[in-house]
Amino acid sequence: MSMIEFHDVEKYYGKFHALHNINLTIEAGETVVLIGPSGSGKSTLIRTVNGLELINSGQLIVDGFDLADKKTDMNKIRKNVGMVFQHFNLYQNKTVLENIMIAPRIVLKRDETENKKVAMELLDRVGLADKAGSYPAQLSGGQSQRIAIARSLAMHPKCILFDEPTSALDPEMIDDVLNVMKDIARDSSMTMLVVTHEMGFAREVGDRVIFMADGRILEDDTKESFFDGQPTNERARQFLSKIIKH
């Protein structure tokens, strides 16, 4: 079964048509990179996947749940679909350890000893075990984002959505975060949908690259044909040459 399926999805903000006729299927375990100019609808698309934005028509199936159906319990989807934001959104009133432990405790009712063990292992994995007792305000951007990723992983999701996870970071911190993300991508069972302009990441661990503009998907290629072949779409080609120059 596919992890995410968009069928003829349309999305409006009031009168503004944000997503046009989106058709997209992402298989379990795939790492898909979503690129496109500012305002093209990347955030909107990724946010529909866990119901932070609702679609107006079409069909959107995530982890077997139909998101267009009002009866669908979004919380059930969100248990299995994590999200990492550009600005981290760590809980400011909780320590790093609590940031990671709280959702498994109150949402999954995970046993406290087990919960702590999982959290400490994850802190270790992202290289921040010494920050367990710190508060988010005491962390750098790169550290915050790695904690945010650990917080997502603690729910043992099937899929994680990343919305420009490195674009608010100082350049020297970007690699620390990308390395953690690459590490996750190598886990073959995890599905990842990543909005990023880090083409190194896409080349290294991406399976597919999707190019969006003006609320439409203009290009949906395997990594190989996107980078080595050249995108067929003219705008995608121009966009790619622009971001690769940097």
């Binding site: 866990n50 932070l52 979004m74 919380n75 969100r78 248990k79 994590g82 999200m83 934001f85 600005h87 981290f88 959104n89 760590l90 809980y91 400011q92 009133n93 909780k94 709280i102 959702a103 109150i106 949402v107 999954l108 945010a148 917080r151 997502s152 729910m155």
Partner: peptide
Amino acid sequence: VDPGQMEGSRANGMTFSQAMRYV
């Protein structure tokens, strides 16, 4: 409170009331 706090909580699987209460 930064709306990102509510969004982060909801994306993390919490219900609206859990997010309110704990975050």
